[in-house]
């Protein structure tokens, strides 16, 4: 005998009505979102819109990993944090903003820096990992750990007016690419953006983070065609979007 699913409260019927109307989501999909758990690495330019849309969508549990405090320079794009939050841990201000947005969502803050000692534990019980980090060391660690644990990874990166986003399914299939297939080694120091090149148009992470949120919801719901096997390149200055195929690099030293 199958158990009858929990009924939506009148408040939830209203809150999720625009999902409930979609054939691809509907009551079953909304219940699935409410039962899902997603880890977002970084509560910054990408993480803020990702977290806001996932919380609004009713993803039941959100793990937020960030060890930074809010700085004035964050406020131009990191929309979960406000001026009164300057100096506070980003996990605190993010948790408060998300709780105000949707009390259905449980936010699990991790005010730590992701490293080899904690990454697998933090990722173990989530359904999807979203990378909104800002450095290569963390991106490799997130990708390697997610691949080892077979967790789908929604990854994005930004530079000035540009961004790129993809999904690494980490499904164990032989042709699935990973972050190391795309970037086998970190760029040499001279190739990293210097201080005066660290500018970013504030709406760019909003756009890319929204795409990450949409891809995460699609993966959780099992609907549509994800960006798995494709890299979406966005140039906001020209406002051009294009996708390139992503292949597994036979020489890639995946950490299985």
């Amino acid at each position: 005998m199958t158990e009858r699913p929990a009924a939506f409260t009148p408040e939830q019927m209203e809150r999720y009505s625009r999902h409930l109307l979609l054939r691809e989501v509907g009551p079953r999909g909304q219940r699935r979102l409410l039962a899902s758990r997603v880890m977002v690495v970084g509560a910054g330019g990408l993480g803020c819109p990702v977290l806001a849309y996932l919380a609004a969508a009713g993803v039941g549990t959100l793990d937020v990993v960030d060890s930074d405090v809010v700085e004035p320079s964050n406020l131009q794009r990191q929309i979960l944090h406000g001026t009164p939050d300057i100096g506070r841990p980003k996990t605190d201000s993010a948790r408060e903003a998300l709780a105000a947005l949707n009390p259905d969502v449980r936010v699990v803050p991790h005010a730590v820096r992701l490293d080899e000692t904690n990454a697998a534990d933090l990722m173990a019980s989530v359904d999807v990992v979203v990378d909104g980090s800002d450095n290569f060391a963390t991106r490799y660690l997130v990708s390697d750990t997610a691949r080892r644990l077979r967790k789908p990874l929604v990854a994005a990166a930004l530079f000035r007016f540009e961004g790129q986003v993809t999904v690494f399914p980490n499904d164990g299939l032989p042709d699935s690419a990973c972050y190391r297939c795309l970037f086998p080694t970190p760029p040499p120091p001279g190739f990293l953006p210097s201080c005066q090149e660290a500018g970013i148009l504030g709406a760019v992470p909003g756009l890319l983070g929204s795409i990450q949120a949409a891809e995460t919801l699609k993966v959780l719901l099992g609907i549509g065609e994800s960006l798995a096997g494709r890299l979406l390149l966005v140039d906001v200055l020209a406002m051009e979007f294009r996708t390139v195929r992503l292949h597994r690099n036979p020489a890639c030293r995946h950490e299985e």
Partner: peptide, 14 residues
């Protein structure tokens, strides 16, 4: 509308 459709869909689902 659209709560009429939402509530109908939820009722039928059960």
């Amino acid at each position: 509308c659209p709560m009429t459709v939402v509530r109908t869909r939820l009722a039928l689902e059960d």
